[in-house]
């Protein structure tokens, strides 16, 4: 292999590595907006009421949500885990539900908390 061809191959390889590196860095460094909605959810024939005594733990500080509340949390990277702590107002018993959201390159998500807690397969609102 002559020197010129080898140099050009090396240059092309470096360019490809730079592009791949940029793509990977964009994947891990992207910030996403997640809107969480705690109002009545109706889907797949079921109606899920809003939750009381709800506390959301995300990458930011924990936030308490009342029925009808809507909050915005931001998350970085390809996926994030949201933890919902629900304390029953009658029995004062708490339960925790973790939900892992795979975000990819999408910037914004609109999720229903009652749907997530209720185990709905598709807790997303159509924008």
């Amino acid at each position: 292999m002559n020197v010129k061809l080898r140099r050009n191959l090396l240059r092309v390889a470096l360019c490809l590595i730079a592009v791949a590196g940029g793509f990977l860095l964009s994947f891990i460094g992207m910030y996403h907006s997640i809107i969480l909605d705690n109002s009545e959810f109706s889907g797949a024939g079921a109606v899920l009421p809003p939750l009381e005594g709800l506390r959301v733990v995300s990458e930011a500080e924990p936030v308490e949500m009342s029925p009808g509340d809507r909050i915005l949390v931001s998350a970085k990277g390809p996926s994030t885990t949201l933890v919902f702590e629900i304390t029953s107002p009658e029995t004062q018993q708490s339960r925790e539900i973790s939900y892992t959201l795979h975000m990819g390159f999408k910037k914004q998500f609109f999720l229903s908390v009652p749907a997530i807690v209720g185990g709905e397969k598709d807790p997303f609102f159509v924008e």
Binding site: A18, G21, G22, L25, G29, M30
Partner: peptide, 18 residues
């Protein structure tokens, strides 16, 4: 514009600027 943050954002900016 792409919504990047943290060190990856700086590295991508450097990669784009290069």
């Amino acid at each position: 514009d792409w919504g990047l943050g943290g060190m990856p954002a700086l590295l991508v900016a450097a990669l784009l600027g290069t």
